[in-house]
Computed example of a mutant assay.
Amino acid sequence: ADDREFTASGDVNDVESIRQFAVAYLRNEQDKDLRAFDLHFDNYYLESSLYTSGRVEAAVKKLQDAGKTYEQDGALWLKSTEYGDDKDRVMRKSDGSYTYFVPDVAYHIGKWERGFTKVVNIQGTDHHGTIARVRAGLQAAGVGIPQGYPDYVLHTMVRVMRAGEEVKISKRAGSYVTLRDLIEWTSKDAVRFFLLSRKADTEYVFDIDLALAKNNDNPVYYVQYAHARICSVLAAWGGDVDSLREADLSPLDSPKALGLMLELAKYPEMLSAAAADFAPHDVTFYLRDLAAAYHSYYDAERILVDDETVKKARLALVAATARVLHNGLQVLGVSAPQKM
Score class of each variant (00 low, 15 high):
residue 66 A to Y: 00
residue 190 A to T: 07
residue 156 T to S: 13
residue 193 F to W: 13
residue 79 K to D: 04
residue 14 D to R: 08
residue 331 V to M: 11
residue 168 K to N: 12
residue 115 G to P: 11
residue 258 L to D: 10
residue 335 S to C: 15
residue 46 L to Q: 09
residue 134 V to H: 02
residue 3 D to H: 11
residue 233 V to Q: 01
residue 275 A to C: 10
residue 106 A to F: 04
residue 219 P to Q: 07
residue 304 L to F: 01
residue 245 R to V: 10
residue 78 L to G: 03
residue 147 Q to P: 05
residue 303 I to G: 00
residue 297 Y to E: 12
residue 258 L to T: 10
residue 199 K to L: 03
residue 152 Y to R: 04
residue 254 S to K: 08
residue 155 H to W: 07
residue 120 V to I: 15
residue 331 V to P: 05
residue 160 V to T: 07
residue 228 A to T: 06
residue 308 E to T: 06
residue 44 Y to G: 12
residue 56 V to P: 06
residue 288 R to N: 15
residue 193 F to Q: 11
residue 290 L to P: 15
residue 139 Q to K: 00
residue 218 N to Q: 04
residue 120 V to W: 08
residue 17 S to R: 01
residue 140 A to F: 00
residue 338 Q to N: 11
residue 36 A to G: 15
residue 167 V to A: 13
residue 283 V to T: 11
residue 199 K to S: 12
residue 224 Q to I: 12
residue 87 K to R: 09
residue 260 L to T: 06
residue 88 D to T: 03
residue 15 V to E: 07
residue 84 G to L: 00
residue 174 G to A: 11
residue 8 A to P: 13
residue 238 G to M: 06
residue 223 V to N: 10
residue 72 Q to I: 03
residue 317 L to H: 02
residue 230 I to C: 05
residue 129 G to H: 03
residue 324 V to F: 04
residue 300 A to R: 05
residue 80 S to E: 00
residue 234 L to Y: 00
residue 239 G to M: 04
residue 254 S to H: 04
residue 258 L to I: 12
residue 273 A to W: 14
residue 300 A to E: 10
residue 13 N to F: 09
residue 191 V to N: 12
residue 21 F to A: 14
residue 172 R to Y: 07
residue 14 D to E: 11
residue 35 R to M: 10
residue 269 E to P: 01
residue 183 I to W: 09
residue 337 P to M: 13
residue 56 V to D: 12
residue 322 A to D: 04
residue 75 A to P: 06
residue 105 V to S: 01
residue 282 D to W: 12
residue 230 I to D: 02
residue 253 D to G: 14
residue 254 S to P: 02
residue 8 A to K: 09
residue 277 D to T: 09
residue 24 A to C: 07
residue 220 V to M: 11
residue 146 P to H: 03
residue 3 D to G: 12
residue 305 V to S: 01
residue 275 A to H: 08
residue 147 Q to R: 08
residue 307 D to M: 01
residue 306 D to H: 02
residue 315 L to P: 00
residue 219 P to Y: 06
residue 178 T to M: 13
residue 161 M to S: 12
residue 72 Q to C: 10
residue 111 K to V: 05
residue 206 F to D: 01
residue 309 T to A: 02
residue 100 Y to E: 05
residue 129 G to V: 01
residue 26 L to Q: 15
residue 304 L to E: 02
residue 41 F to Y: 15
residue 195 L to C: 14
residue 306 D to L: 05
residue 72 Q to L: 13
residue 91 M to S: 03
residue 92 R to F: 03
residue 252 L to G: 03
residue 291 A to D: 06
residue 81 T to L: 14
residue 86 D to Q: 08
residue 296 S to L: 10
residue 322 A to N: 02
residue 174 G to S: 11
residue 121 N to G: 02
residue 27 R to Y: 08
residue 133 R to F: 02
residue 293 A to I: 10
residue 121 N to C: 09
residue 337 P to A: 13
residue 237 W to H: 03
residue 282 D to Q: 14
residue 235 A to M: 04
residue 160 V to W: 05
residue 49 S to V: 07
residue 330 Q to E: 11
residue 212 L to N: 12
residue 35 R to T: 10
residue 198 R to V: 09
residue 143 V to L: 03
residue 242 D to T: 15
residue 175 S to L: 13
residue 168 K to C: 09
residue 205 V to S: 15
residue 334 V to I: 07
residue 234 L to M: 04
residue 126 D to I: 05
residue 12 V to I: 13
residue 146 P to G: 03
residue 320 A to C: 04
residue 113 E to K: 00
residue 233 V to P: 00
residue 133 R to T: 07
residue 271 L to A: 14
residue 193 F to M: 13
residue 14 D to V: 05
residue 156 T to N: 14
